[in-house]
Amino acid sequence: MIKLESVSRVYRRSRTSAFGPRAEVHALRDVSFEIEQGRRFGIVGESGSGKSTLVRLIAGLDQPTAGTVTFDGQRVNGRSERQLSFLRRDLQVVFQDPMGSLDPRMRVRDIIAEPLVAQRIPGQEGRVAELLEAVGLTADAGRRFPHQFSGGQRQRISLARALAPKPRVLVADEPVSALDVSVRAQILNLLADLVDQFALTLVFVSHDLSVVRHVCDTVAVLRAGELVEIGDVERVYRSPEHPYTRQLVQAIPTLRGALSGVTAEDLIRP
C-alpha cells in the first residue's frame, strides 16, 4: 500500500560562515520498506532518528532528496499539491501536540470539516456530527474552540478531523506522548476501535516501543536516519536482532521488571 524505495532526505543547515560548505543533516538514509494494507505498522525511533521526516514524506508534506515514495502504486513524491488529491483523501495524519495541531481560532466543527471543505466533499454538517459521536464527543463540542478542551479531548478532535474524508490509511505521529497516563489508555482504545471500525491501515509513530508493541503488529526501528530492524513486533521486542534494538528494549523501564529487581544500572548494562 505504502512503499518506500531507497528514500533519503538531506537538510541543509543555514550558513554559519560566509565560506565553507553548508552543514548537511542526513535525516534519512536509504530507507526502504513496504506497509501492506490492513497492517498496524509501528515506526520506533528516538530523537534524531528521522521518524518525523518519514511521516512527512509518507504524507506528501515533504520531498525526499533521493528515492521514491508510492501510495497504492502511485508515486507521491515530485507531485504538485493538485496531483496529490488521491493521497489527501486516502491518507490522513494525526499529529503529536494536541494543542498545536488545532488552529486556536477555528471552532471545532470547522476544524473537523476542514478536509471536507478542502476536498469539496458535500454533506459536511451531518458528517461532523457523525464524527463527533464516533470519537466520543458531545454534539455541542462543535461550537467550541480547542482551548476549551483537555489534552485527551483535543486528540479526539484531531482523530475526528483525520477520519472526515474516510481515509484508508491513518498515520499517527506520537499521538499519545503528550497525554496523561490515565488518559493515554482511553485514546489508545479509541484508536484501536476506529482502526477496526473503519478498516484502516495504521502507521503509528512513537519513541515508546512498549506503546507500539501494544498497538501494532509490525515495527520498523529507526536510528539516526537508518532503518536498523523491521519485523513482527513481538519478535522484535522479545528477541531483537540489531544491537541498537537490544539496547532500546533493555533501556525501557517496566513496572514488572522493576518490581522483580531490575535497577537503573541494569537498564544500561551492556
Binding site: 528516538e46 535497577t263 537503573a264
Partner: peptide
Amino acid sequence: VTVQAQLLD
C-alpha cells in the same frame, strides 16, 4: 529512553 536509562543510573 536510552539516555533516560543512563541518567537514572
